[in-house]
């Protein structure tokens, strides 16, 4: 039953994407319906449902957080670039994430790449190596707040904080 639910959800999502990609052209809708059902079946066969349910409200909150932080990130790098001395203090930092493997961890790594001052370099198990533009910034706090938001999106209980090692 969970499989059927996932299939319906994915097919509906894919059909929406089809509609968007054809820019609402009605002549392609019939053809699209067939393709979308086939792709939906294939996706359920290849990637069985993960058991995570996305929480709509938390997802919206995450989107807002993400946009705000990416503006901060862009302005931050821009400010450093435009000041005459280019104040950077780059280095590596390894953080341990409390998020489970799979989608949540992957989302965290990609999100951190677009957040101010961090770039995910390597994800091995629960440890995530970051390249930081400025080691003097409170990177750990940033990582934890991103972690909390992502935990909310996947409906996970916020676990205890991991540790950070330089």
């Amino acid at each position: 039953m969970a499989l059927f639910g996932a299939f319906c959800l994915r097919t509906a999502g894919l059909y929406l994407v089809w509609w968007v990609m054809t820019e609402g052209d009605s002549s392609g809708l019939g053809f699209g319906a067939v393709i979308v059902v086939l792709v939906g079946l294939l996706s359920c066969k290849l990637y069985s449902p993960s058991g995570y349910a996305l929480h709509p409200l938390a997802t919206l909150r995450f989107a807002g957080f993400f946009m705000l932080r990416s503006v901060v990130a862009g302005v931050d790098v821009g400010r450093r670039l435009l000041s005459p001395s280019v104040p950077v203090n780059p280095g590596y930092l390894t953080v341990t994430t409390s998020l489970p493997a799979g989608g949540p961890r992957w989302l965290l790594a990609n999100t951190l790449s677009l957040m101010p001052g961090t770039l995910s370099v390597r994800l091995q198990g629960a440890s995530l190596e970051l390249h930081c533009l400025d080691l003097d910034q409170p990177i750990d706090a940033d990582v934890r707040s991103a972690e909390r938001k992502i935990a909310g999106v996947f409906g996970l209980r916020p676990a205890g904080a991991g540790e950070t090692t330089p």
Binding site: V71, V77, L81, V88, L114, L133
Partner: peptide, 17 residues
């Protein structure tokens, strides 16, 4: 920026914005 990783920082964040 003098090293490659800092350049990646600049390119990823600013260009996406």
């Amino acid at each position: 920026f003098s090293d490659t990783l800092c350049r990646i920082h600049a390119l990823t964040k600013i260009d996406n914005l």
